[in-house]
Structure formats: structure tokens, C-alpha cells
Design a protein around this nucleic acid. Structure first.
Lengths: 222, 222
DNA sequence: CCTTATTTTGTACGAATGTTCAATCTAAAA
DNA sequence: TTTTAGATTGAACATTCGTACAAAATAAGG
């Protein structure tokens, strides 16, 4: 994805290897702190401390607090969006698509990254929840999330040409919100009697839930 | 619901009618400001200004900022929980329950209140989203939300005795998260092509979605 | 080696925050 | 009417916040 929303300032030299390392260290620290406290309660000072650098260095690499949040979200969103589109393309070659296949192409790549990529991707899930819930991040969502989501909605719409797109868009948003709930409100499920099981099993269950929901909705509205 | 988590200080006189009025004015103002900016970005000063009173008066009636948030959430949660339980009881007299009937008893009372009760209930939806997403409100959710949710989960579990409760709890959380998404991320749905329609129609669609999802999940896991 | 762009440090500023407290006003109770 | 608990005001406190800036350290390019 082209990141034209915040270009780097003009450089005369390429950033040094060490600079790139600290830059990544700062983004990781910001990701953890933002996920832990939310945007407003997170402080630049805690981010700096978590990264082991000075406060001004965070500003130097990340820009303002708001710009820093953009960079943190966009970094993972770009990687994940690419993986989702790739999964969809690969699946297309293996025959005609179904609703469950499309949802697997959307949920699957995140599962793989979360299982192998450590705490960063779980923190990212909390950031997605924040961005989706707060109208303040409208533009961020429009840049980072909407294009890929639009792609998947259209893919489902192709399966049901006589169903109005709005019904599909709504049920897709419900599905994504359920995914975010799975990743961010595990404590609430446990409080209601859901003991821990493997993340992969939960994903299978979720895909069953969403596929049935989407199918029932489009059939009712067509 | 018994509100033992923060009792009033001992009084020698009953609060005057005017005091009760300003108290309610403050809770309403806090509700709006919390919903608008989130807990951390909301300021006691903006709440005071919105209520047309001094800052110290907000503290006097609401306690600390955190206590004030509890009071704001608990006020609506108690009323809504009562309505949901009443709806379930009333429905039981009209014959055997189904999944869709149970979900209607959960979603319906909110719809009625939102359609007649003005902006307060829409603000409350945003507060529920915050509480559900942030582990900081674990105790608040346990007191205000979990008992009623537990009741509905058990009601569904009674329909499928051979299904493990955790599958039902998970799909119920997915359903509630979809309801919250419907109420708080309308802008995201519109960005994906969902034009505005009546709230009641959206609720019908959502119940279709959730009923199908729950039914498919419990049948797969039994 | 020397120059210079970049990275990193340390510090400081002004603004905004939640909370507290004494003083004043209101109205219920005696 | 007198008394007094409670409601309301206004101002102040200490703290934390995001940001800016100059100086020092680093490393790349000539």
C-alpha cells in the first residue's frame, strides 16, 4: 500500500542501520503501550522508557503522538492486508469461492501471524478495536482497513448478485467485530464460562458462526 | 440490582429535589462527554461545563472520575438489565423459547429504549463498547453486564443440553459484539456501502445473523 | 582525516489534568 | 425564626502531559 499520508522528510543520507533498529524498537514499544492503555492514556514518556530511549527520540522517529499511532497501525495493516489479498488470489486458483472460503482468506492470515509472530499481533488486535470504535480514527481506517475490506465484501457480493450490497457490508462488519471480540475480550468469554482452548479451534468456530450468519442474512434480504 | 460497590455517604437529611435534579444533570452530561471522547480524553471540566455547574460539584455528586464513570454506566445498565429479564419472563409465558426468541428478548429492549429515549441510550452503547474492550473495567463489567449475560447464555444452553457451554458463551459474545458494532460503527458500514435504513430493520437483520451463527455453532460442537 | 548530516541526549516550557479546600448560599428541620 | 446539614461556588494545588530546542555524540561521505 502506498503510504502517502505522511511522507518522510527530505534526506541527504540513507538512515543508518542503527537508526533503523531504534526506529523499529520505538514502534514496537509504542505498539505495546498504546495497546495497554489506549491512545489517550498512553504517554510518550512510557513509550520512551519501554524502548529504552529518550522522549525526544520518540518524537524524532515517530513524529507527533498522533502520527506515531498512524505509523504503528499502518505498519501491521499493510503487511496483513497484503497477506489477505494474497490468500484470496491463491484460493481463487483452487476453484470457485464460497463464503466460508472467503472468510478463511480474511481470518486465516491473521491467525498464522498471531501464532508465529508473538505479542505484536495481539497488541495490534487491540489497536484495530480502538480504531474501529473511535470516529477520531475515521481517516486512518479509511486508508488502512477499508480498501481490503471493500475487496472482500465485493467478493461475497459476487456470489449473491441479487442481494443488495448493504446487507453484505453490514454482516461483514458484524463478522469482523466478532473476530476483534475473540481477540480482545477473552476475559469476558471466560467470565461467561468459556474455558481456554486453542486459538485455531476458536477461529474454526468463529468462521462457522460468521459463515452461517452471512449466508442467512443474504438469503433473507435477496 | 444491588449497588453495593459504592454506597452513599451517611446522610442526616434527604437530598433536596433540586439536588437530585442537578445530580441527574451531571450524570447526563458525563454520559455525553464520556461517549464523545472516551474515559481518558474526557475531562471533568468539560463535563462540568456541559452540565452548567462548577467542577467541584461534579466531584461532590459523582465522586472521583472513575466512580463517576461507574455511576453513569450502572444507571443505564440496571434499567436495561431489568427490561431484558422482564422480556424473557414475559416471553416464557407465551410458549417454548427458541434461539431467535431469546435474542429478541436481549436486543429488543435496547431498541425500544433507543427509539424513544433519545441520545442517552446511544451514548450508553459507546460506553458499553469501551467497557467491553478495556480490561481496566473488568470489575464494572462483572457487576453490571455479566449476571444478565449469564442468564441468557444459560437460557440458550437449556435448548442444547449436549452442547458444551463454552461454545454457547463464545457465540453469545460474538452476537453482543455485533450489536455493539451496529450501534457504534455505523460510519464504517457506510464506508463499505451500507446506506442508511431504519434501526428496526437493522435489528431484524442482526437477529437473523446472530441466530444463524449461534445455531450453526452449537450444532457443529454438539 | 575532516566535514557534515543525522542520531541521541538532557532539559525546559506552557498548558491541561484530577483533586482538594475554605467560603458562600440554600433550604430543610427544630 | 433560628439552626445546621447539604449544595454550590471559586480558586488553588501538585502533577503530568506533548512538544520544542540546543548541545553532544555518532557515523557516513569526500
Amino acid at each position: 500500500m502506498q503510504q502517502d499520508f505522511l511522507q518522510e522528510k527530505q534526506r541527504q543520507r540513507a538512515p543508518s542501520a542503527r537508526a533503523l533498529a531504534t526506529r523499529s524498537k520505538i514502534l514496537n514499544a509504542a505498539e505495546q503501550v498504546f495497546a495497554r492503555h489506549g491512545f489517550d492514556a498512553a504517554s510518550m514518556r512510557e513509550i520512551a522508557q519501554e524502548a529504552g530511549v529518550q522522549v525526544a527520540l520518540v518524537t524524532h522517529h515517530g513524529g507527533s503522538k498522533e502520527e506515531l499511532f498512524w505509523r504503528v497501525v499502518a505498519r501491521r495493516a499493510d503487511e496483513l492486508s497484503q497477506a489477505r489479498v494474497d490468500a484470496l488470489e491463491a484460493r481463487r486458483f483452487r476453484g470457485p469461492l464460497s463464503v466460508s472460503a472467503i472468510m478463511e482468506c480474511h481470518f486465516g492470515p491473521y491467525l498464522e501471524k498471531a501464532e508465529t509472530g508473538g505479542a505484536g499481533w495481539f497488541a495490534y488486535a487491540r489497536l484495530v478495536a480502538m480504531v474501529s470504535a473511535d470516529t477520531r480514527w475515521r481517516d486512518l481506517a479509511a486508508v488502512c482497513f477499508d480498501p481490503t475490506a471493500q475487496l472482500f465484501v465485493e467478493e461475497i457480493a459476487r456470489l449473491y448478485p441479487e442481494t443488495p450490497p448493504r446487507a453484505i457490508a453490514a454482516s461483514f462488519v458484524y463478522s469482523v467485530s466478532a473476530l476483534i471480540a475473540l481477540l480482545t475480550t477473552e476475559w469476558r468469554m471466560q467470565a461467561l464460562g468459556d474455558e481456554r482452548e486453542s486459538l485455531a479451534d476458536r477461529f474454526d468456530e468463529l468462521i462457522t458462526f460468521c459463515t452461517a450468519g452471512i449466508t442467512a442474512t443474504v438469503q433473507q434480504d435477496s
